[in-house]
C-alpha cells in the first residue's frame, strides 16, 4: 500500500500542502486535476526526484520519503516518455536492468518478456526518433516495469495520443493492473479517470480535496470545484443487463438505456457527454437507440453554448448552441425529447 501523509513541498512559485491519500496494493488510482494543480510534482515527490519538506510517504509499510531515488521501488513514466534518444528501444528497456547488474542472458529474457507484454517486440532495434507517440509510451512503460516496481507512477500517459491509440493504451494499462501492479496515474481528463480508476483522487491547488470511487467522486462531488472540474454531467450508477450481443441495457432506477459494450452484465456506471445528446420537439426517426421524453428543468449558459437539463426520470444534461436553444424556444418547463446513440454511452464496470 502507498500512503501519503501530510506531505508538504515548497517550490517557490508552487507548493503542495498537506497532501493525504492512500493507494491500496493492486489498485488503479487516478489523480485527477487541472494542469498546474500539482499532479506531476506530486508524482516526482513520490518518485524522489523532488524532496518533500515534511510528511511521510510509506510504500508497503516502508518509509521512503528520505530514501534515494534509486531505492524507492517506484517506476515513473514521464508525460513525454523521456526515452533516451541515443539508445535503441532494446537498450532503453535494458537500461534499468544493466544499472542493477543483471547478466546478459537474464536481461535479454526480461526485455523480450516486457516487450511482448507492452506490444513493442517488433520495435526493439529502432531508435526513439523513429517511434510514434503511442509506441514511445509503450516503450517507456516497459522500461519503467523492468525492475518490477511496487508502484507504477504514470504522468499523463494517454493525453497526447489519438482516440484509437488511447483505447489500446487503456486496455494495456488495465491489463497490467489486472496482474496485480499498483498504478498511480495522473490526468486532467475525467473520462480517462472514470474509465480506468478503481479510485480517484481530485487534486486542486496543490492539495488532494477528495478521494473515492468514480461513483463517489462524480455522483457526490465534495465541493463546487470537484463538481465543475469533473465535468461529467451525465454520470449514472446502475446495472447492466443482457447477454450475448454487444447491445445491452443499462438500468438506472426504472429507465433502460441502450449501451454498446462487450462487458458482462453487472453493476457499474455509464457516462455520456453533454454534447452527444440531441434535443427535439418531436420524437424523430434516427439511429439514436435512446430517446427520453421529459421537462426542461434548467437552461444555463456554458461556454459558447447553453446547458439544458431535462428531467426524464433521470436528469440528462445536453449541450446545445444558443441559436438552437433560441430557435426551438427552449425554456424552463418546456416538454422535450432527448436522444443519444448507444455508441455515445460509455460503460464502466463497477
Amino acid at each position: 500500500m502507498l500512503k501519503i501523509e501530510n506531505v508538504n513541498v515548497d517550490l517557490g512559485k508552487f507548493s503542495l500542502r498537506e497532501v493525504n491519500f492512500r493507494v491500496n496494493s493492486g489498485e488503479y488510482f487516478v489523480l485527477l486535476g487541472m494542469s498546474g494543480a500539482g499532479k506531476s510534482v506530486l508524482l516526482q515527490v513520490i518518485g524522489g526526484l523532488i524532496r518533500s519538506e515534511s510528511g511521510s510517504i510509506t510504500l508497503d509499510g516502508r518509509e521512503i520519503s528520505r530514501e534515494k531515488v534509486q531505492g524507492r521501488g517506484v517506476g515513473l513514466v514521464f508525460q513525454d516518455s523521456a526515452l533516451f534518444p541515443h539508445m535503441s528501444v532494446y537498450n532503453n528497456i535494458a537500461y534499468p536492468l544493466r544499472s542493477k547488474g543483471y547478466g546478459r542472458a537474464e536481461i535479454r529474457g526480461r526485455v523480450k518478456r516486457l516487450a511482448e507484454v507492452t506490444n513493442v517486440a517488433h520495435l526493439l532495434g529502432r531508435f526513439p526518433a523513429n517511434l510514434s507517440g503511442g509506441e514511445k509510451q509503450r516503450v517507456a512503460l516497459a522500461r519503467a516495469m523492468a525492475l518490477k516496481p511496487r508502484c507504477l507512477l504514470l504522468d499523463e500517459p494517454i493525453s497526447s495520443l489519438d482516440v484509437q491509440l488511447r483505447r489500446d493504451m487503456r486496455l494495456l494499462l488495465r491489463n497490467i493492473n489486472s496482474q496485480g501492479q499498483t498504478i498511480v496515474h495522473v490526468t486532467h481528463d475525467y473520462e480517462e479517470a472514470a474509465l480506468l480508476a478503481d479510485r480517484i483522487g481530485v487534486i486542486e491547488n496543490g492539495t488532494v480535496v477528495q478521494t473515492g470511487t468514480p461513483g463517489e467522486v462524480f455522483l457526490h462531488p465534495a465541493s463546487e470545484f470537484v463538481a465543475n472540474f469533473a465535468g461529467i454531467r451525465n454520470f449514472f450508477e446502475g446495472k447492466l443487463i443482457g447477454s450475448g450481443s454487444s447491445l445491452k441495457q443499462f438500468v438506472v432506477r426504472d429507465k433502460k438505456i441502450s449501451v454498446l459494450t462487450a462487458e458482462p452484465a453487472g453493476k457499474g456506471y455509464i457516462t455520456l457527454r453533454a454534447e452527444d445528446i440531441t434535443l427535439s420537439g418531436n420524437r424523430t426517426d434516427s439511429s439514436a437507440a435512446n430517446s427520453f421524453y421529459g421537462t426542461v428543468v434548467s437552461v444555463d449558459p456554458a461556454g459558447l453554448g447553453v446547458e439544458v437539463t431535462v428531467d426524464a426520470g433521470i436528469k440528462l444534461c445536453a449541450l446545445v448552441s444558443r441559436e438552437s436553444a433560441a430557435g426551438m424556444g427552449i425554456s424552463r418547463g418546456s416538454a422535450i425529447w432527448a436522444s443519444f446513440k448507444a455508441t455515445a454511452v460509455k460503460y464502466i464496470p463497477g
Partner: peptide, 25 residues
Amino acid sequence: EKLEKAALNLGASPARVFITISLPL
C-alpha cells in the same frame, strides 16, 4: 534534465547517469 531524472528513477547511480546519459548526449 528529465532524461537524467528518468535514469535515476531507473536505478542508475549519479555516476552512471553522467557516463551513460549526460556525456553521450
